[in-house]
Simulated scan of single mutants.
Amino acid sequence: MSKFDGYFLRQLLVLCGFFAFVLVGVFWISKAVSLFDRLISSGQTAMVALEFTALTLPTLVRTVMPMAAFCATVYVTNRLNRESEMTVMLATGSSPFRLARPVILFGLICAAMLATITLYLRPAAMLRLEARQAEVAGDMTAQLLNDGQFMHPVKGVTVYIGKIDRDGTLNDVYLSDRRAPERVVTYTSSKAYLARSGEQIALVMVEGTALQMETGRKTLSTTVFRDFSYDISALAKRDIERRQGIRGMPTLALAAALSGGELSETYSQGEIAEELQERLSWIGVSVAVTLIGFSTLMLGTFSRFGLWPQLIAAFAGLIALEGMRSTATAFVATHPGLWWVQHAPALGGICLSIMFLMIAGRPLRLRQRPSADLA
């Protein structure tokens, strides 16, 4: 590797890291604020909210990495051209293909990073996130430990807690059970406690009153109790069994499912092929976007006004590539046998970049012909 290649590659890596850090920070903060508010308001601790946001980082990094690589390539290439460094290299006889060598190496480095994130880190994070979401959704203790507000754990049940002491004592408890329209029961008590035995959760109320209204007979009965236990375990049950998401499945398991593995009984071949090929397509995209950004800017010549037409064309190519990838993903979901369509946009972008580099190198050869003929 020449000094220019090392210099070019270092600039690309530094700028890519900077753009990735900024983009991940912007997306992560905007998503973390709403997630923190929702989890903390439901009784979860700040550590649980931080864990949830950390588990979304692989998805965010995968999303912004191609954009960061593209922006780094365009920015560095434009700066080298504006400072005449690229012009000097072309004047010394270096072809656009020769100058693209550090860009290709940079794209391969980004591809290796995306392969690690997409094929391993993101599925593992999604699997852990789904498990933690199920735990939080079924944690009735956390849902009930909110004082000063009306809560609705399930449809037809309303709970209100006036104050929660440090030792866990619940004060001024109100519970209304309207799940059976013909029999509405309302419990009030001065104090209550949450008791757990295995998977059973009970709300033990003391010094309270139970009001039972029979809507059919239009009667109201009042019962004063010294202590009463209300089983709330049923509130944590779900009407349907949770199916493990395909995004959290290991990549090797998805590959095995295409040939009739265990997942083929849970998901269709279209869903499996779409998820597997979508993961693999990110690897080629990282190479394609860097080459598109570099080759498009190489079409322009030195100008004091910059390379604005080429910059606009490069961003248009990036948007077109993402649009074709979205269309290909939907197509593969309905036609799993044509899985190669998912990789066609990336391959098309690479081929288009090669054509742009050939066009950019042609003026050099044309200028060299007269000097050769005179010799």
Results as ranks from 00 to 15, higher is better:
I109E: 01
E274Y: 07
R101H: 02
W339R: 10
G156M: 02
T219P: 06
S190N: 11
Q44W: 15
F106L: 03
L220A: 09
L364F: 00
G25D: 09
D147A: 11
L35R: 14
P250N: 09
D227T: 12
A131T: 11
E262Q: 13
A316S: 14
M249L: 15
E199T: 12
F70M: 10
F4Q: 03
L280D: 01
F18A: 09
R247E: 15
A234C: 08
L276H: 05
I201W: 04
E182N: 13
T290I: 04
M1H: 02
G93P: 01
M89C: 05
G337V: 11
E322Y: 11
A344R: 03
M358I: 02
Y187G: 06
V332D: 06
Q310S: 05
P66L: 02
L307D: 05
M205L: 13
N146E: 05
S303Q: 07
R242N: 10
S326F: 08
F305Q: 14
L12Q: 02
P336A: 08
F106S: 01
T334D: 14
P250L: 07
T63G: 08
K31M: 15
R325Q: 15
K31W: 13
I164Q: 07
R166K: 13
T301C: 10
G261S: 05
L145C: 06
S303Y: 03
A91S: 13
T77L: 04
A54Y: 12
